[in-house]
Write a protein that binds this DNA or RNA. Structure first.
Lengths: 322, 322
DNA sequence: TTATCACATGTTATCGGTAACAACATTTCA
DNA sequence: TGAAATGTTGTTACCGATAACATGTGATAA
């Protein structure tokens, strides 16, 4: 492995000039710069990040703190993880996965935090002494990255209204967190705007629980019912309930989900959903955190992704495949 | 952050003695050792891994090289990834995710390689100049970690025979790779041993393709047919085909999968499968690679995990839930 | 012409560790 | 008893980079 000194020797300059070419190229004359760059290319130079970290008093480690109790098999977090990992990697930062308990182990340059609940702010987040970004909207003024949750359910609700449904239910997760309140708000707002009466139900984020609840709500009564679900997991349960009741999907019952991470595609029929580009969001989150670190930890602002409506067989017979 | 020098000052010894207490405690007198350890505790000492990496000429980076074209949303790889990440993290190694194209970017101390196909050995794996471990069995004599694929399909096939099925098909993936051949072999061997005629079909690892193929094979003919599938993805397709044909599962058609990573649980009915403890396997893989690196890269041998049969509704009406 | 300044480049010290060797004390054994 | 072996601790140099400062050059202005 070639080092700074090797390049310096080859280009007949000092180590410092080589270092400058890398970090402050404008401070080196064009002539020497070219010499050095050529030498670097010829010797296939790769900087030693450990050395740089040492002298800059950095760890080159970013922690991903997942506060929610999570199932490691959950594709949602796996996608987030890989998005972050890919981006950090590009900038030669390492990712350390930590939880509530292990969060203090080892040093780091910054954190990405997700899965926070109301109680976590006082206890954990307010106490942070490093730059961080929250993955998920919050109303405490902390920098975050999220999808526009309210617009997401607006899109699905409007879609169902367009299809002619009059009875449209909302199946949410029983958490009073900003993302959930926003999804419920998007639904309520759209229903009111169309003069329809909202009916909201809240439950655990589980397909089985949702299936039971849906079985009750879809029985008899109205021949055409649609359900706006706050997650694909819940939507899967509702689809199953519909099939079990012998309802024709999407004519007698239409269902929309939220997330668009894997689950939507393995259901049968496939689920119309709001796609959150989690991998991309993870990348952006990492990128913004690094930027925040490099600018000394100053506030960097929020980033809200536009939600994307993916139409599938749970609402339309032959959707345009893409 | 306290450093070696801080500890040394506090304990009134030299830096070197502190370093020895950490790396070669037997070379330091019990008296001084205690002094140093106390100082370390009091100052809450955490070693600087960048500095150590620098002086030991290590990168503290392990690459995970995935040769197979992969869907990043695939829970299988996500589990592997997180298993490896958790273990590496414990030893303060960073994980870098690379593919065929990006594999040469950046330096590393070792690699975990997976998804290799026959052609990859000459081109890539034989040329490696760092210690590595393959995730997945191979017949080239390279160290690997895998589940016992042959025994896996033996277990599922025997299970179906026990249930009284006489016509038992095998749905495999159309790859002539060791893991696939082993899964086919486990099936064939068990069928022969019971005097039953094997029928093998090979296809793309896709639930839709499997559904089409199963639709053909499950129609008419035999009132009771079972299918041993080489992946849960294929099994999901077969289950759907069975339901579409109006067959009663598990009486008229029974299906087993392979992998036990998420997919098996979201199917309805849930799928009897061979569980591969991927997260645990990833951890072990990382642990063995580090061991291999520390012992200078010498061969370390293979590790084969025992497969575990998980019985669910696709083969038994009311399985014992656990 | 010469003091001053800006700019380009080199020198030195340093980050936090560890290896190699030196120095000293203590045993061991002829 | 004293030379050699052994064990414990300290000194020095170095890993590969960068910051801070020092030096040297030519241009500019008084």
């Amino acid at each position: 492995m070639a080092t700074l000194s090797d390049i310096a020797k080859k280009a007949a300059v000092s180590k410092m000039t080589v270092s400058r070419v890398i970090n402050h190229p404008e401070k080196v004359s064009a002539e020497l710069r070219k010499l050095v760059l050529t030498a670097m290319r010829e010797l296939n130079y790769v900087p030693n990040y450990a050395a740089r970290a040492l002298v800059k008093n950095r760890t080159q480690v970013i922690k991903l703190l997942i506060l929610e109790e999570m199932d490691t098999t959950e594709p949602y977090y796996m996608n987030l993880l890989s998005g972050i990992a890919i981006e950090l990697d590009k900038h030669h930062y390492a990712l350390q996965l930590v939880t509530r308990n292990s969060r203090a182990i080892g040093n780091c340059d910054g954190l990405i935090i997700t899965g926070m609940r109301a109680g976590d702010y006082d206890e954990i987040i307010d106490q942070m002494d490093r730059p961080f970004i929250l993955f998920g909207q919050n109303d405490r003024g902390y920098d975050y990255v999220d999808v526009d949750n309210e617009e997401g359910t607006e899109l699905t609700t409007k879609h169902l209204i367009h299809l002619g449904f009059k009875r449209i239910l909302f199946f949410g997760i029983d958490l009073k967190e900003p993302f959930m309140l926003a999804r419920a708000a998007g639904y309520k707002k759209t229903m009111s705007a169309s003069g329809l009466g909202p009916e909201l139900f809240f439950m655990k984020n589980s397909s089985h629980v949702a299936q039971e609840e849906a079985a009750k709500q879809l029985t008899g009564r109205c021949p055409k019912t649609a359900v706006v679900c706050a997650s694909d997991r819940i939507a899967i349960g509702v689809v199953r309930a519909g099939l079990a009741l012998g309802l024709h999907i999407p004519d007698e019952a239409a269902i929309t989900g939220f997330d668009g991470v894997f689950l939507d595609r393995i259901s049968c029929p496939k689920i119309t959903t709001i796609r959150q580009p989690i991998i991309e969001m993870g990348k952006v989150c990492a990128r913004r955190l690094l930027q925040k670190i490099h600018q000394g930890g100053d506030k960097i602002g929020n980033l809200t992704f536009e939600p994307e409506l993916i139409i599938r067989e749970s609402t339309i017979k032959k959707p345009n495949l893409h």
